[in-house]
């Protein structure tokens, strides 16, 4: 048992943690505009990965596959908004929680029957031979995950900060009525946020697929950790997810080493429950005032 090994685990875990952070970021996008999240987001990740795999099998070039997969994710996001979220939000009910769970279940079953229940490899042109830096091995594949995550998050964060359309997200989150008076359509902005959220999840699927392989259950534990990251960081806190993802990924990797791989989900789940108990708005989130 030496230090390099532990460091190695921390680094690989933290890298994986960025994928959780990316999906969690997708939750933040929809939560900001509509106070809702897609409980079936894991299925969205999985379906996008399967779709991309199909594109690869058709012999389409990898960059095009990525674009196709991302667009597919965005379309699924729009579908979830239309079928699962909009009505419930209009009726001001919590029905969307059930409906998004149901849509996820449907997606899961469909994937199982179309693509089969087995895990399949996801070929990618990026190498998985590790490069050693200070004795710690990092594969180009892992580097591509980090780059991909930061590229997507940077892109969308830039969109939110530097375009007027993006600022409309923040306006809608801050004050729905006033946003309407400015000419910001809530329905359209929520649609856009779901499309972006789907886009982000598809990216997560494409990035992680070469590492974990593709199968109907590929995202079922992934999504739990993304929930943890989102809740611990706060559902409305921007870049808090990156740090939380780093930490959770590292903790998880150490846990699975010391306690056995079966326990690897446990710290995330515990953290989520603790975070909800201690600070429901998240470590980086803001507290709000109750109104009557």
């Amino acid at each position: 048992m030496n230090r390099t090994m532990i460091l190695q685990m921390i680094v690989s875990g933290a890298l994986m943690g960025q994928v959780y952070a990316l999906i969690a970021y997708g939750f933040q996008l929809t939560y900001a505009t509509s106070k809702s999240i897609n409980f079936g987001q894991g299925e969205l990740v999985m379906l996008s990965a399967f779709f991309s795999l199909t594109l690869i099998n058709w012999g389409i070039a990898y960059p095009l596959v990525v674009v196709g997969g991302l667009l597919f994710g965005a379309v699924l996001g729009l579908f979830v908004e239309r079928a699962g979220v909009r009505l419930a939000l209009e009726q001001k009910s919590e029905g969307w929680i059930l409906l998004t769970i149901i849509l996820g279940l449907f997606g899961f079953s469909t994937a199982e029957n179309i693509w089969g229940r087995d895990d399949r490899p996801f070929p990618t042109p990026i190498s998985s031979d590790p490069i050693h830096i200070f004795g710690i091995g990092i594969t180009p594949l892992e580097v591509s995950v980090i780059l991909g995550v930061f590229a997507v998050m940077g892109l969308i964060e830039g969109f939110k900060r530097y375009t007027l359309l993006g600022k409309a997200f923040a306006a809608l989150a801050a004050d729905r009525d006033a946003a309407g008076l400015m000419g910001i359509s809530a329905t359209r902005t929520i649609m856009l946020s779901y499309a972006l959220s789907g886009f982000v999840s598809a990216m997560a699927g494409i990035l992680i697929a070469p590492i974990t392989t593709v199968g109907p259950t590929m995202a079922s534990t992934l999504i739990l950790k993304a929930f943890s990251v989102a809740v611990v960081a706060g559902l409305d806190s921007g870049f808090g997810v990156v740090i939380t993802g780093l930490v959770l990924g590292a903790i998880e990797s150490l846990t699975s080493f010391f306690l056995g791989s079966g326990w690897r989900e446990a710290p995330g789940l515990l953290l989520l429950i603790l975070a909800l108990a201690v600070r429901p708005t998240g470590l980086f989130g803001k507290t709000t005032i109750r109104k009557v």
Binding site: A174, D175, D177, A179, M182
Partner: peptide, 15 residues
Amino acid sequence: HVFAPLTVEDNLLLG
């Protein structure tokens, strides 16, 4: 009903 978490400038731009 100003957008409290946004800057003055962003509030004006959103107008």
